[in-house]
Design a protein around this nucleic acid. Sequence first.
DNA 1: TAGTGGTCTAGACCACGTG
DNA 2: ACGTGGTCTAGACCACTAT
Lengths: 266, 266
Amino acid sequence: MRGMNSNPASTTNSNGTVPAAEAASVPSPTFSPLYQQIKALITQGLEFGEWKPGEIIPSEVELAARYKVSQGTVRKAIDELAADNLLVRRQGKGTFVAAHNEDRVQFRFLRLLPDDGDVHPHVSRLLECRRLRAPAEIARQLDLKPADPVVLIKRLLQFDGVTTVFDEIWLPGAVFRGLTAERFSEYKGPLYTMFETEFGTRMIRASEKIRAVAADETVAQYLGVAEGFPLLLVERVSYTYGDRPVEVRRGWYVTTGYYYYQNDLS
Amino acid sequence: MRGMNSNPASTTNSNGTVPAAEAASVPSPTFSPLYQQIKALITQGLEFGEWKPGEIIPSEVELAARYKVSQGTVRKAIDELAADNLLVRRQGKGTFVAAHNEDRVQFRFLRLLPDDGDVHPHVSRLLECRRLRAPAEIARQLDLKPADPVVLIKRLLQFDGVTTVFDEIWLPGAVFRGLTAERFSEYKGPLYTMFETEFGTRMIRASEKIRAVAADETVAQYLGVAEGFPLLLVERVSYTYGDRPVEVRRGWYVTTGYYYYQNDLS
DNA sequence: TAGTGGTCTAGACCACGTG
DNA sequence: ACGTGGTCTAGACCACTAT
């Protein structure tokens, strides 16, 4: 492999050098470092379920042999996947597919913390779960055609019996076939874990827009506050592999005694 | 150097292996990988001003020679410092000390974006800048003794002529000697740039607590909104080298037409 | 004892920026 | 043409976990 990763402009294009075996489906003409190509291959394995959440993936040495590259190259690929929170390394044991049912998840996707720092589990109460045609704005955000089917979920979150969050969750209907109120109610545990195990959809990344708004009549009633009460509105779009949006979530938060946490501005 | 980085429990403690020259002041008895030690040495160079913001640092080869380690070890140290936003790599040119006067800074520390996506520069208007004794809560957050001197700055930020942010900034008086309203007014450019060039204090990291609050009489007047209007309250603590807190900032944001942005929940 | 990830090295070549 | 960071390799040894 040494020295074969030449410039795409050179006479011998480097993509022939992807150590075949299970090379990318369509060898693109663009150049990328070997470890990026390995990273893509491993990501495919994750996406297509070759290794499932919580499971161990082959050792670095094995992967190096399979892809016909050095261990160092596999290592760099895994380093990035671990930084992206897709894999978790455990020294002496191996490398595992990140699962959404670990302790940290509640704080990865629900960043609301109480002022006193104590950690309380939350209770979810389903208000509504129905299928309808996507409003224009939701369709745009989910990258669907207007009027495509979507699932709308409304729910409340309670901390210590106090209703603190009202969520409005929009999901693409095609992906979340058979998601009903019953199915929803039966499921114990975090929502993202259900999405993962029941619908094979993993949330990889999210972006959020945060603002302060006044509670309207409906939301005020749900949250047990006066109309006009200041609420934190968090509008999140979550993405799965390939940066495909698969969830739009609008959350109205009562931030009395709670705050939204954000670390490190990088 | 090969193979000398043995366990701290072993007979020959590894810290003697720090390639001296400019070894750490107090060789601690705890073990850490070589590249972490190199990282600490480079960080010291940054903290003590050996290389100033915007300047280039020695090449990897030079640093490897100076610290008597391989280029790969220096590389790993620099990789982490770049990930921490303390250094910036530029292929073909060299590695530079991150400066706070670049384009990205306005978005690194002021994450307010307009709904339409356009980017407008902001104008700052100083309301007040005086010295006083630290209230208990501020003293706690700045790691000072109660009643230690602090500087309190109050200011407004305007976007397109519209007042959008009211800031209350608390700084340790000992560090920011000679910071007066005049000095403040004279300075053009971002605040953090002034802190850096005028007072030798760099903000490295920050954490934020965000909530929605109702505008009180004073803030409402400053921001030109009705009393009770919902505002985003962002409480930020900024840290310099060694995780020492050097700023407490409370910002009240009008989020009409603007939102607070947050990417990637990692 | 064996296997895994983690560290460290030395050397080669590539890609980028500048003279 | 030269120097910088970026990629890749091969091999050694360390640290942790399990058996």
